[in-house]
């Protein structure tokens, strides 16, 4: 399964990639903001998206809304520091399937990914 990780922090992308590889997901593509995320998504093969919210150029919320216009079914997990109730609701309304607040444990990421993949 190919997973797209969109985060402007290279350290955070490495942490997520590392966690994914420990739970068996090694096919990963990376984007550093919503705009590059859309480019990677356009290249095809992506079956799941993990995205940050606060990024330059195109933030995660705008990215999710754009993806949902083109692809209503792809599972999207938002991993962000935004912890306010209204933020979580806004992300869910935009089309995010699940939500993780940073900092997180690998177990949480695993639990959320598994719940998205059914």
């Amino acid at each position: 399964m190919k997973i797209l990780i969109v985060d402007d922090s290279s350290t955070m992308r490495r942490i997520i990639i590392n966690t994914l590889s420990r739970i068996g997901y090694t096919d990963v593509v990376e984007g550093e903001n919503g705009k590059s995320g859309l480019e990677k998504l356009g290249q095809g093969g992506v079956e799941m998206i993990i995205t940050d919210w606060n990024m330059p150029e195109m933030d995660g919320l705008e990215f999710v809304k754009t993806v949902r216009v083109q692809n209503p079914a792809i599972p999207i997990l938002m991993v962000t520091t935004n912890a306010a109730k209204e933020d979580i609701v806004e992300a869910l309304q935009a089309g995010v399937n699940n939500y993780v607040v940073k900092p997180f444990t690998p177990d949480t990421l695993k639990e959320k990914i598994e719940s998205l993949l059914g």
């Binding site: 606060n54 962000t80 935004n82 912890a83 933020d87 607040v101 949480t108």
Partner: peptide
């Protein structure tokens, strides 16, 4: 980048 309005309270404890 857009900013998190709750980041000031964010700690370093995972899953808080």
């Amino acid at each position: 980048p857009s900013i998190s309005h709750t980041i000031a309270q964010t700690g370093t404890t995972p899953d808080e």
